[in-house]
């Protein structure tokens, strides 16, 4: 029994040593990969069409990273499903620093709006940096009798459901900004979604 146990212990120790060796080898490979990074082209996935804010930001970053890293940095537009196609592709790419995603506010909206997304935006990505932001501007037609937001809220309260607001589409950030304002101000304003580049109707 004693010798058997000793043998088992020796085996365990050997097994342990092997694991440690393998781990050390992996660690060394990891360190080597990081030291050499980047040794080839980096891809920034943009889930929207060329020319939009995500695309312009990605191309601007790509240009600077190319100079800093001395490696090509390419932008790949993978469009569709309100950004989900490109995000899924990036989420399922190797976690080696050679595939990145240029995300935007819509990714945190889709999490609650789109059922059965094939990736988890919070768990499947490692954030690098929040690089920029654009404000939305609340605008009205000059004929609307409100010179500022306080007056507009007062007007909406005096005529519940009579005012409308436009956005670029149901579930767009501009739509949700309006819903948030309605909730915070306690007013009833009707949302009218407009897709594409047509000028949305104004609050009136």
């Amino acid at each position: 029994m004693t010798s058997l146990r000793r043998m088992r212990c020796a085996n365990d120790r050997l097994g342990g040593a092997r694991v440690a060796l393998v781990a050390a080898a992996l660690f060394a490979a990891n360190v080597a990969a990081q030291q050499a990074y980047p040794s080839r082209a980096i891809k920034i996935v943009v889930p929207f069409a060329a020319g939009g804010p995500s695309d312009v930001m990605a191309r601007t970053l790509a240009q600077r990273l190319n100079v800093a890293f001395g490696q090509p940095v390419v932008v790949e537009n993978r469009t569709g499903a309100a950004g989900a196609i490109g995000a899924e592709y990036a989420a399922k790419s190797a976690p080696d620093g050679y595939t990145l995603l240029l995300a935007q506010v819509g990714d945190t909206i889709s999490m609650s709006l789109v059922p059965n997304l094939p990736y988890n935006f919070q768990k499947d990505f490692a954030p690098i940096s929040l690089v920029g932001q654009t404000a939305f501007i609340l605008v009205t037609h000059p004929s609307v009798p409100a010179n500022n937001l306080r007056e507009l809220i007062a007007l909406a309260k005096s005529k519940p459901g009579a005012l409308t607001f436009g956005s670029s589409g149901a579930g767009a950030a501009s739509h949700l900004a309006g819903e948030l304002l309605k909730g915070m101000a306690g007013v009833d304003i009707l949302h009218v979604p407009y897709k594409g580049r047509r000028l949305p109707p104004l609050i009136c």
Binding site: Y37, P53, L65, T99, V131, A135
Partner: peptide, 24 residues
């Protein structure tokens, strides 16, 4: 705001994230 941010797949080594962060 309409924000824009860069991310990498989960599991990307931290030194690589830091390098990308610094340059961005």
């Amino acid at each position: 705001g309409f924000w824009l941010g860069a991310l990498a797949p989960a599991g990307t080594p931290r030194p690589i994230i830091d390098r990308l962060n610094a340059e961005m």
